[in-house]
Simulated assay, not measured.
Amino acid sequence: MASDPTAGDAPAEMPVESAEDLDIRQPADLERQIEQLKAENADLQDKHLRAMAEAQNVRRRAQQDIEKERKFGIERFARDVLSVADNLGRALSAVPVEESLDPGLRNVITGVRATERELQSVLERHGVTRIEALGKPFNAEFHQAMMEVEDPSVPSGTVVQELIPGYLLAGRLLRAAMVSVSKGGPARTAEASNER
C-alpha cells in the first residue's frame, strides 16, 4: 500500500477560524493605530534629536574644559611662583648704589638680576604677563588701590607708585597690582581715562 505524501504529523485539513480569531479590524481602528504609531514615531525622533544635541553639548563642554585646564591649569603654581619674583624684586630694591659695593657683591647682584629676568621670561613663556601700572589711569579690574597720594602735578586717579606688581594669566587676572593713586591733581580727560 502506497503511503500518502500528505499524510504525516500535520492534519490534512486546517480548521476554518472565526472572524474574531482572524483579528480583522475595521478601517477606523486601523487609522487610529496608524495615528498612534505616527505619534510614537514623532516622539521617538524628538527624543533621538534631543539626545544627539545633549551628547554634542557634552562633547563641546568637555572640549572647553580641556582647553580651560590647558590654559589655566598652572594658575595655582603661577601664584606661588609670583612670591619668588616679588622677593627677588624686593632684594634688588634694597641693594645700595652699586658703585659703593665691592666687586664680589656686585657680581652677586648681577646674578640676582639675571635670575629675576630669567624668571620673568619663563613666566611670560607660560602666559603669565606683568600688568603695567605705573603712570596709567587707575583701573579697578587690574589695580588695587592701597593708598592715595596728594600730587597736584599728576592727573587725579593716576597710578603713581606700584607697591606689588600685578599679573595676568592668558589675559585673565592672576593678581591685581597693589598701587598708590594720585588725588588732588587736574581731572583726567575722557581719552586718558579709557587707557588700560
Results as ranks from 00 to 15, higher is better:
Met1Thr: 13
Ser3Cys: 11
Ser3Arg: 15
Gly8Asp: 10
Pro11Glu: 15
Pro15Leu: 15
Val16Glu: 09
Glu17Thr: 08
Glu17Cys: 07
Ser18Leu: 13
Glu20Val: 14
Asp21Val: 14
Leu22Met: 14
Leu22Ala: 10
Ile24Lys: 06
Arg25Ala: 07
Gln26Cys: 07
Gln26Asn: 13
Pro27Gly: 04
Gln33Glu: 14
Gln33Asn: 07
Ile34Val: 15
Leu37Arg: 14
Leu37Met: 14
Lys38Asp: 15
Ala42Gly: 04
Asp43Val: 05
Gln45His: 10
Gln45Tyr: 11
Lys47Gln: 07
Lys47Gly: 00
Ala51His: 13
Met52Leu: 15
Glu54Lys: 13
Ala55Lys: 11
Gln56Gly: 11
Asn57Trp: 00
Asn57Gly: 09
Val58Leu: 15
Val58His: 10
Arg60Gln: 09
Arg61Ser: 05
Gln63Asn: 03
Ile66Tyr: 11
Glu67Arg: 07
Glu67Val: 01
Lys71Thr: 07
Glu75Trp: 01
Glu75Ser: 13
Arg76Gly: 10
Arg76Tyr: 09
Ala78His: 01
Asp80Trp: 03
Val84His: 03
Ala91His: 01
Leu92Ala: 06
Leu92His: 08
Ser93Gly: 11
Ala94Gly: 10
Ala94His: 07
Pro96Ser: 07
Val97Arg: 14
Glu98Trp: 00
Glu99Leu: 12
Glu99Val: 09
Leu105Lys: 07
Leu105Arg: 05
Arg106Thr: 06
Val108Tyr: 08
Val108Lys: 09
Val108Asn: 05
Ile109Thr: 08
Ile109Lys: 02
Thr110Phe: 09
Thr110Cys: 02
Gly111Phe: 01
Arg113Gly: 04
Arg113His: 03
Arg117Phe: 06
Glu118Met: 13
Leu119Gly: 00
Ser121Trp: 06
Ser121Pro: 00
Leu123Tyr: 02
Glu124Lys: 14
Thr129Tyr: 00
Thr129Phe: 04
Arg130His: 07
Glu132Phe: 00
Pro137Gln: 06
Pro137Gly: 08
Phe138Glu: 03
Phe138Thr: 05
Ala140Gly: 12
Ala140Asn: 05
Phe142Ser: 09
Phe142Asp: 03
His143Tyr: 10
Gln144Trp: 06
Ala145Ser: 10
Pro152Asn: 14
Val154Ile: 15
Pro155Arg: 01
Ser156Pro: 04
Val159Glu: 03
Val159Asp: 03
Ile164Lys: 10
Pro165Leu: 05
Pro165Lys: 07
Gly166Phe: 04
Gly166Cys: 13
Leu169Tyr: 06
Leu169Trp: 04
Gly171Cys: 10
Arg172Pro: 01
Leu174His: 01
Leu174Met: 08
Arg175Pro: 02
Ala176Val: 08
Ala177Trp: 02
Met178Val: 13
Met178Pro: 00
Val179Lys: 01
Ser180Asp: 01
Val181Asp: 04
Val181Gly: 00
Val181Phe: 02
Ser182Thr: 05
Lys183Pro: 02
Pro186Lys: 08
Ala187Ile: 02
Arg188Cys: 02
Thr189Phe: 05
Glu191Trp: 05
Glu195Asn: 09
